[in-house]
């Protein structure tokens, strides 16, 4: 077995709605012979509460996360926005508790987004995957602007056999998800995702790929309502070498 053991943090939306994305990650790490564990008791990183202003509740979620993952060597997560939450907001959630702040910083330093971990930490861009088809890539906001992860997913996609990446216009414009924003302001949110879909369709790609399931659910939900046939895939599903899936 090579490399440090990875502790999977499977974002709640992946855990509950798209477990196949988590399984795809397992297959990629298995292929790379990276030892894996899935710490029991993990729930949610607390981002919904934080973004809605409920910092005490978000801090409780952060405390729980820290307890679950404290002993991990590296925490890897298939979601840019959750990693953004852990890395950039956890250290701010305990302003009156220096001990918790230090624990939060320690967790922040060892929590990575999936493609970031592969490319920046492991130095791997070729995961020996195959995907016959054309895809376009959506840059999710917290991943690209928040964490600066733009080239890593593209490097990985670039090495997938048979895959052709067709960039869409404004790939880094927000899809309109925004957490509870999408529920509280559906008219605005749908107008935004419609523009995203226009740009996706213009590429003619078979599938749209991203690193954040939350954006992908938003895009998928609108595509489904509109009756469009484009497939929506998390990048792990591409890198696992499996075409399709239920997504």
């Amino acid at each position: 077995m090579a490399g440090a053991p990875v502790s999977l943090f499977i974002q709640c939306l992946v855990d509950t709605m798209f477990p196949e994305v988590g399984e795809a990650m397992v297959r990629v790490f298995d292929r790379l012979a990276i030892p894996l564990t899935y710490p029991d008791g993990q729930t949610c990183c607390g981002q919904p509460a934080y973004n809605s202003g409920y910092r005490r509740e978000a801090a409780a979620a952060a405390r729980h996360f820290i307890e679950v993952f404290e002993h991990a060597k590296a925490v890897v997560c298939p979601s840019g926005s959750c990693v953004h939450m852990v890395r950039h907001h956890y250290p701010e959630l305990f302003p009156d508790d220096p001990v918790m702040t230090e624990r939060a910083k320690a967790i922040a330093a060892k929590t990575f987004e999936f493609t970031e971990y592969l490319v920046d930490i492991l130095g791997i861009t070729d995961v020996m995957a195959e995907y016959p088809g054309t895809v376009t890539y959506h840059d999710s906001c917290h991943l690209s602007r928040g964490l600066g992860i733009v080239r890593q997913p593209r490097m990985l996609l670039g090495k997938v056999r048979g895959l052709e990446l067709i960039e869409m216009q404004d790939s880094d414009t927000c899809c309109g998800f925004g957490g509870t924003f999408s529920i509280n302001y559906p008219e605005i949110s749908v107008a935004m995702v419609d523009e995203k879909i226009t740009n996706i369709l213009a590429t003619g790609a078979d599938a749209v790929v991203g690193c954040d399931i939350s954006c992908l659910i938003n895009i998928l939900g609108r595509l489904s309502r509109r009756g469009e046939k484009v497939e929506v895939l998390h990048i792990a599903q591409i890198l696992a070498g499996e075409k399709g899936g239920d997504a």
């Binding site: 749908v190 998928l220 939900g221």
Partner: peptide
């Protein structure tokens, strides 16, 4: 508000946590 203009994928039959226990 979500389903005003969008569909929503349902909760999966098994969570990843359950699959992990069962398969991995």
């Amino acid at each position: 508000g979500w389903t005003k203009g969008r569909d929503l994928p349902p909760l999966a039959r098994q969570t990843f946590a359950e699959l992990w226990k069962e398969k991995y």
